[in-house]
Simulated scan of single mutants.
Amino acid sequence: MTARLPLFPLNSVLFPGLVLPLSIFEERYRALVRDLIALPEDAPRVFGVVAIRDGHEVAPKDATDAAAGFGENPAQALFTVGCTADAATIGEHETGGGYEIVATGTTRFRVLSIDATGPYLVGEVEELPEHSGEGAGALAAGVARAFRTYQKRLAGARERTLAGAPELPDEPSVLSYLVAAATILDTPAKQRLLEAPDTATRLAEELRLLRREAAVISKLRTIPAVDLTQKAPSPN
């Protein structure tokens, strides 16, 4: 079964269960938000977040015109698997002329086609179910241990103390998405994790990546000051 979904291109990947804050100022996305606000109160206010493949940067907390420059075939500039975002909170920006949104990732989808004729992109999408896969439980335990090691080495490389780290979730799929979001990886690597055919495959890839990254960090005196894992994102 397919559905039409407003699309919000970003230069980052949203995962199910993770929170996404957005500041909306560009007119086409203000139009998208106005359409969400106009929905009946009991209707879900959802849109689709899709990562941009090349060259168009849109910071999640400072959104600009992500669709501009995509040309006649925007599908070529976007990854085909994204995540539905539920806009639980929508408020007008305190300076006026824009909106502040706090959305939460819910389900993955595949983009089948894109309609660029309106004020913002709209995709024909199909939902991608999350399958467990073989051995997800055992892999989850290994990923949790590897992620804790990764966090400790990352904190050590920054000469910081890892404090207040929350308990990791027991459910393998929830763990897989949280680790995917919290690990410092480039957009293509995160996108591959989002697109994994099942939880077990995602966890196996994360275990490989975490071991590699922890080994690299242990050999470095300092690392870039991108503070993404001092505190892991909280799952919904």
Results as ranks from 00 to 15, higher is better:
Arg212Val: 13
Gly82Ser: 01
Ala138Ser: 09
Leu139Asp: 05
Leu39Ala: 08
Tyr177Leu: 11
Thr187Asp: 11
Thr222Met: 14
Val174Pro: 07
Glu134His: 14
Thr149Val: 13
Ala204Asn: 08
Arg28Gly: 01
Thr89Ala: 15
Arg145Val: 12
Ala38Asn: 08
Arg160Pro: 07
Leu154Gly: 14
Tyr150Trp: 05
Pro188Lys: 07
Ile52Lys: 01
Ala136Arg: 06
Tyr29Arg: 07
Arg153Trp: 09
Glu213Val: 11
Val58Tyr: 00
Asp65Tyr: 03
Tyr150Asn: 04
Ala225His: 13
Leu220Lys: 11
Phe79Asn: 05
Glu27Met: 08
Val33Ser: 00
Val143Met: 00
Ala63Pro: 06
Ser12Ala: 14
Leu210Arg: 04
Glu159Met: 12
Gly91Thr: 12
Leu168Arg: 07
Val49Ile: 07
Gly71Met: 00
Val111Gln: 02
Asp54Pro: 06
Ala155Ser: 10
Thr201Gln: 06
Val216His: 15
Val102Ala: 13
Asp186Ala: 11
Ala87Gly: 05
Arg53Ile: 01
Glu171Asn: 07
Thr183Met: 09
Ala200Gly: 04
Ala138Thr: 11
Ala43Trp: 11
Ala196Asp: 01
Ser173Ile: 10
Thr117Met: 10
Thr183Ala: 10
Arg148Leu: 09
Asp115Cys: 02
Leu32Asn: 00
Thr2Asn: 13
Ala66Val: 01
Leu210Asp: 01
Thr222Val: 14
Gly164Asn: 05
Ile184Trp: 14
Ile52Arg: 01
Leu128His: 02
Thr84Asn: 09
Gly164Tyr: 03
Val111Cys: 04
Leu175His: 05
Leu36Gly: 07
Leu193Tyr: 06
Phe47Cys: 05
Asp198Cys: 06
Leu203Pro: 06
Asp54Ser: 11
Ser234Glu: 15
Ala204Gln: 08
Thr229Phe: 03
Leu32Arg: 00
Leu162Ala: 08
Val58Phe: 00
